[in-house]
């Protein structure tokens, strides 16, 4: 059981990564910020980040699933390294690659961005912890 904990944590992180921009801290025009009259709202820039983070979340869940099913030394180290890369991407998409809406007071900047950064940091910590744990295994 203890050997599979990392896999479970990774999968939970992936799930949180998907839930965050859709429901927990939704980007502009989603969740509780959904427009009452969708007709006059064009697409927000942060919609691309939403897509990207969803894909990253699915990837994170898959990486976690692999270490859950096969808790071996090499697999844990590998998926932890993958998690580290994913954690970087989680932060890079909203900050650089796809970006967010411009105004500091829009939901994607007020809620989604800090939530994603927090997740990214958590993922990095878990990634490092996973590598350390994996190195201790035979």
């Amino acid at each position: 059981m203890a050997k599979r904990v990392m896999g479970i944590i990774m999968m939970l992180l992936g799930l949180a990564l998907i839930l965050t921009p859709w429901y927990l801290f939704p980007v502009c025009g989603r969740g509780r910020y959904a427009p009452k009259d969708p007709g006059i709202y064009p697409r927000h820039k942060c919609a691309n980040t939403l897509k990207a983070e969803t894909v990253l979340g699915l990837l994170t869940i898959s990486v976690g699933a692999i270490s859950l099913v096969r808790p071996r030394r090499k697999i844990l180290i590998g998926s932890s390294a993958a998690l580290l890369i994913l954690s970087g991407l989680v932060a890079l998409f909203p900050l650089q690659i796809t970006g967010l809406c411009k105004m500091a007071t829009m939901p994607c900047r007020m809620g989604t961005l800090p939530a994603l950064i927090t997740l990214s940091i958590l993922m990095a910590i878990i990634g490092v912890a996973g590598i350390i744990q994996g190195r201790g295994w035979k």
């Binding site: 502009c28 006059i40 064009p42 697409r43 820039k45 809406c101 411009k102 105004m103 007071t105 829009m106």
Partner: peptide
């Protein structure tokens, strides 16, 4: 007002 901030977002 609804503003068109020139790029992407309307708010």
């Amino acid at each position: 007002s609804l503003a068109n901030a020139g790029c992407c977002s309307l708010w």
